[in-house]
Nucleic acid binder design. Structure first.
Lengths: 217, 217
DNA sequence: TAGATTGTTAATCGATTAACAATC
DNA sequence: TAGATTGTTAATCGATTAACAATC
């Protein structure tokens, strides 16, 4: 029995917003001024009505017969997602995935700025990864307290994930982006977003196994 | 107006199966023999009834008062996902993310085996990445034809994604795991699974912006 | 046996889609 | 103006949750 006090979810819509944003930025770069949901839907293989419903969540209004002003729409989505301000984050786990995420330029576009990397492997501590020196886990508390970093990214092996989360939360982190395949148990007020790649692989595997190949992306 | 010929989706369930699998493997390593949906639900922060509905998709049946036999359940999920057989894949785009995915040991557990890496950057061609030599894109066709590789992983920059997909499809690839933030246009019969990280970041951003912090993972 | 647990059938909830009036 | 497009209200669809009989 789960009591959901306020029913603001709209999760599927939120997941689609970055795709709209990316397309709009491409169109803006091509000097487009307006775009209709018909065009957006065709490009992203969605239904026009769904695009309109999605965009309305950001509060934007369009012009009948013309569509939406692209710069205003970009601004509305970025504001809604909070991506026009910088959010500082720390990353825990300087393995392959952690290193890749650090090197990924795309995050900056979404306002995410990784300011420090931690690992509890002495062999990794002190090494440079994409311009950042790997710090020992003992320094998490001091750094988060000093910089008031809100977000922690967890890219450690599964067995170390809960402990990493505990350390982050104790230090004052309130949002965790969890790339490990374990469910983190966190106190109220701490937000967790799971990004386990095996979910996606499971979907791909099933779609391919299905004799009737429908390519609903 | 979209006509869906057969309505086999169950996507949310399929997304959760890897989490069940991971937990079950942990329990098995701890010498557990049986597990109830009550225990699974508590660990994964789900509802017992949802766990039962999900597991029933794989065809497994449990024993009242006892739960499910762990080895049989693991086997049922792996079979359902096709993860007990090896699937060969090639990867296009030897950048940060591509390199990280190659180094990620987890895929082997899910039966995914990357047999070749491609890139159209001459500076990258010929270099070794996690034991594989980066090949030029011109060799995709020959290799896929020879090895009959079913899956292609796309980790190229956005502007190169559609062309990469076209090359893969022309070579005979029928499943694409797309890590770029663009919607790939593919012919019928080709399956695409999008794995754009910015969707997850969008959800995290909104959850954190929300004054009422509900941590529904 | 008693009672925990499964699995089915029905109810609820939320997301998607359809219909259509309003707009420029 | 005519007609493409928006945005609202209603209908449909699928997923989650609830109720409860069956089981060992």
């Amino acid at each position: 029995m789960k009591v959901n006090p306020c029913k603001v979810s709209k999760l599927p819509t939120i997941r689609r917003l970055p795709a709209y944003l990316h397309l709009l930025q491409t169109l803006r770069a091509e000097a487009w001024k307006f775009v209709s949901t018909t065009v957006i839907a065709e490009t992203l293989e969605l239904e026009p009505i769904q695009v309109r419903k999605d965009l309305s969540l950001t509060g934007i209004v369009g012009k009948p017969r013309v569509g939406y002003a692209i710069p205003a729409l970009i601004d509305a989505i970025e504001t809604y997602l909070g991506w026009n301000a910088t959010t500082e984050a720390i990353l825990v786990g300087a393995g392959h995935l952690g290193t890749a995420l650090l090197g990924y330029k795309g995050f900056a576009q979404h306002g995410l700025h990784v300011v420090a990397v931690f690992d509890n492997d002495p062999a990794k501590v002190g090494q440079k990864v994409h311009g950042l020196t790997v710090l020992p886990m003992e320094q998490v508390a001091e750094l988060v307290a000093r910089l008031q970093t809100p977000v922690g990214i967890i890219t450690v092996p599964p067995h170390a994930a809960q402990e990493a989360a505990d350390t982050l939360i104790a230090a004052g982190i309130t949002g965790i982006w969890n790339f490990s395949p374990v469910t983190l148990h966190v106190p109220e007020g701490v937000v967790v977003q799971n990004e386990d790649l095996s979910s996606g692989l499971a979907v791909l595997s099933r779609k391919m196994a299905d004799p009737a190949r429908h390519n609903h992306q």
